[in-house]
Amino acid sequence: MCHYCEMWGDGTIWYLNPRNYARHMYTLPKEAKPGATKAVGEADPAGYINLERAMVDALERGPEEYEKAMKFARDMVDMTQGSVGGWMGQVVPLRDAERMAEISNPLGLIACICRKAMLGIEERCPENMTCMGLGVGMLKWERWPERYKGGVHWLTIEETKQWLRDLDTKGFVHSLMMFGPRFIGGICNCDYPACDALTMRLDHGFNMLKGHHVAMVDYDLCNGCGICVQRCQFGALKMNVTLDKANIDQMRCFGCGLCETACPRKAISLKERIKIPSLQEVW
C-alpha cells in the first residue's frame, strides 16, 4: 500500500474510495477579522514555474542548496495542495481511471495547464482536451477563465470512459491529481517532458507517485512485434534484441499500463505492486 492508501484508503486503494472525491459546494462567509491572512492558492501566478526554477538554480549551487530547495518545494506542495511528502499525483492504469470516473461528480473536460505553459498549446476545442477536472469545484471554473481557456465541457460517465480509452490509444499516461487534503480533483493524461508533474518526478523526485501496478511480459506469448516499445514514457520498456522479445525493467516501471493496452497478443499483464516483495516499497 502507498502512504495515501494507509491514510485515506479505508481498506481499499485510496483513489477507488468515493470519500476522496467528495466536497461541499458552498461555504458561508467568515465574519471578517482584522489582520486575517490571505487565502492560500491565490498567491503567485508563476508559483509552480518559480518552484521548478528554484530547484534548477540550486543544482548550480551545490548539494546542500539543492536539498534545501527540494524540501522547500515539497513543503510548498503540501501546504497548497494538502498532499503529504510533496506527492500530489499518482499514475493510474486505464482500468482504474475508468473506475475513478464512476465515483466522482461532475466530470468536466478542461485544457491542460502544463502543455500550455511548456509548449504554448491551446486546447480550445473539446476534441483536443486532455485533462479532466473532478468534483464540485469545477462548477466554479468561471472565476478563472484564463486557467480554463476554452471552457469546461461536461461529460457523462460513459463519454468519459470513451475519452479515456481514446487518449490511451494515442499513448498518454493517465494520472490523478490532488487539489486539497484528501481530495482528488483531476485526471491528467500526459507525457514526459510536456507534463510538469512527470518531469518533476523524473528529474527532481517528487509530485507523481508510481502506480499500484507493475507490468510484466509473458515471454511465451510475446512475439517481439515491438508495438509496446514506443509507448513507454519512463524508459522502462525496451526491445531485448538477443531474445527478440519486449523487456521491462520493473524498477523503472510506473505501472501506467500503456504497454498492456497496446499489446495485440495480451502478452503483457499488470501485477499488483504490493504482491512483489522487492517492489512494494518502491513508489
Binding site: 491514510m7 548539494p63 539543492y66
Partner: peptide, 24 residues
C-alpha cells in the same frame, strides 16, 4: 483515525548529488 507519524512517506532522489554543483 490513522496515526500519521507511523506512516512511511516515500522519498525519491533522481539527482546524483555527488555531481553537484553543475555548470549550466
Amino acid at each position: 483515525m490513522v496515526d500519521k507519524s507511523k506512516i512511511k512517506v516515500p522519498k525519491a532522489t533522481p539527482q546524483d548529488l555527488t555531481r553537484l554543483p553543475i555548470k549550466m
